[in-house]
């Protein structure tokens, strides 16, 4: 399941395989939902359809805006700035930047992948990319508000305080565990136009 074209590889001919792979389950759920709604009651199908609808709504509320921001980041932020502050030779201050950036965001983890990919492409050290993903899943503010409301500030505070150091350590570990010749699709996406733009900036 080496999936799809590399994200952000610029305008290209749409490939068929991801559409078949992704379209079939979607059509199946839609068919079950339609059957349950119009032919005869079918609780499982209706429930799956309702869940699918909620997921789609959540995705559409976040992803388009996220992608526009990532696009702007790609075009405007010069690579050397990112390399200096977040790159391989960056200090512990980079960790603080990653955590702060992650905390200000919202949405499911898959919404953070394009941001992480853009950061990586611009020269962010792998450990900082993973620290970003860890902090995103552990400490984004919109999520914390729900956690405090439903599980109490004590649970939330302790969980965040325990999780952040663990995931920061995992970021360093992961960076060491990735062999240098690893194939990383998002780094191989060539977008000449936007990188040229970033150099001018």
């Amino acid at each position: 399941m080496s999936a799809g074209p590399p994200p952000g590889s610029g305008p290209q001919r749409p490939r068929l395989r991801p559409w078949v792979l992704g379209g079939l389950p979607a059509l199946a759920v839609l068919a079950m939902w339609a059957y349950g709604t119009w032919v005869q009651p079918f609780p499982m199908g209706q429930e799956a359809g309702a869940g699918f609808g909620r997921f789609l709504l959540e995705m559409l509320q976040i992803l388009p805006a996220m992608f526009v921001l990532v696009g702007l980041f790609d075009v405007w932020v010069p690579k050397r700035v990112i390399e200096r502050h977040l790159g391989r030779s960056s200090g512990p201050l980079a960790i603080l930047w990653m955590v702060l950036l992650a905390m200000l965001q919202a949405g499911p983890l898959y919404a953070a992948f394009p941001v992480a990919a853009a950061l990586w492409r611009k020269g962010t050290a792998p450990r900082n990319v993973f620290i970003y993903l860890g902090a995103f899943s552990a400490a984004k503010i919109p999520m914390l508000t729900f956690e405090v409301a439903f599980l109490g500030w004590q649970f939330s505070l302790v969980r965040t305080a325990v999780t952040l150091p663990v995931f920061i350590a995992l970021g360093y570990l992961l960076e060491r565990l990735i062999p240098p010749d690893t194939h990383i699709p998002c780094l191989e996406a060539r977008v000449p136009a936007s990188s040229a733009g970033a150099r001018e900036a």
């Binding site: 952000g8 792979l21 992803l63």
Partner: peptide, 18 residues
């Protein structure tokens, strides 16, 4: 670029969510 990213992720995401 935003549109290209959306195009490449959308079909897979659709399948996963379903």
């Amino acid at each position: 670029r935003a549109l290209a990213m959306l195009q490449s992720v959308f079909p897979l995401l659709l399948g996963v969510l379903a």
